[in-house]
Design a protein around this nucleic acid. Structure first.
Lengths: 143, 143
DNA sequence: CAGTATCCCAGCAGATACTG
DNA sequence: CAGTATCTGCTGGGATACTG
């Protein structure tokens, strides 16, 4: 890979993380990754996002779909996602209220990006688990 | 896109999030995404990972590179990353202690996956910011 | 240099009860 | 059905002081 240089000690030119990554033209934009993670990294964001990416979903459907989630968290995450323009909320002013959440094109793109992470997780799932066990045995187990 | 079906109400067959995503052959593995985010979603994980991906880094170098990080958090994140097999820790038993952290091949692959997220964040940065402002003005601003 | 240990706070998240 | 409100607990994370 293209990481043979160990001159990390050079000033990063930015208060953020490394910006001279192969994917950043000339400026440090890696901070945005954190923003993404902050946004999407919530405990339930992805579950909701994934569910909404399949098509319009109703509140209760989400509640059942994600299952472990509480009402509060569902509402909160929904609001955040909506606020960020990742979900669109459609209210049908019927007698029994009906609200549908749909993933916006932006969210669908993110969902797509998530695939990369997922496949990575899939590939190295066992390796990570083993690394953990090995580490725990080597450190915590000996004490 | 392949999300024309709104039958999300069907049982997900798993206690996790949607598993019938186009990238999962036949089982719900989307939970691993959360594991990844749990692992990498830390406030500093990515900064450290990115820095270590450029080559071996020393403790103090990381401290300066990430800048905002505290000693405690640096150590903690480092430990977690090492535990998960994402970083390898090499100790040089010299008189002034010298420790180098290097990203493992696995971490390098993750770093690669992160690019997708970064580009996504880059692309929709403004859109999200605007969505936020609009939302705040429409909801919180009117009250 | 490379950590560890301690104190402390803020925000995330769970459970539950109430409402339009 | 689709939320909102409240109360509480846990963990992440910041600051600082000490150590091998």
């Amino acid at each position: 890979m293209s990481q043979g240089n160990n001159d990390v000690s050079v000033e990063p030119t930015q208060a953020c993380v490394a910006g001279d990554a192969p994917f950043t033209p000339g400026q440090a934009k890696a901070c945005t990754v954190r923003e993404v993670l902050d946004r999407v990294g919530g405990k339930w964001s992805i579950g909701i996002l994934v569910a909404a990416s399949q098509g319009p979903v109703r509140f209760t459907e989400l509640e059942r779909h994600v299952e472990g989630i509480s009402r509060r968290m569902l509402t909160l995450t929904l609001r955040n996602l909506e606020r960020d323009g990742l979900l669109s909320r459609t209210v049908y002013p019927t007698v029994p209220p009906k609200v549908e959440y749909t993933a916006t094109p932006i969210a669908l793109e993110l969902y797509d990006s998530l695939v990369a992470l997922t496949s990575w997780a899939e590939r190295h799932r066992n390796a990570i688990a083993e690394a953990r066990t090995a580490y725990d045995r080597a450190h915590g187990g000996t004490a």
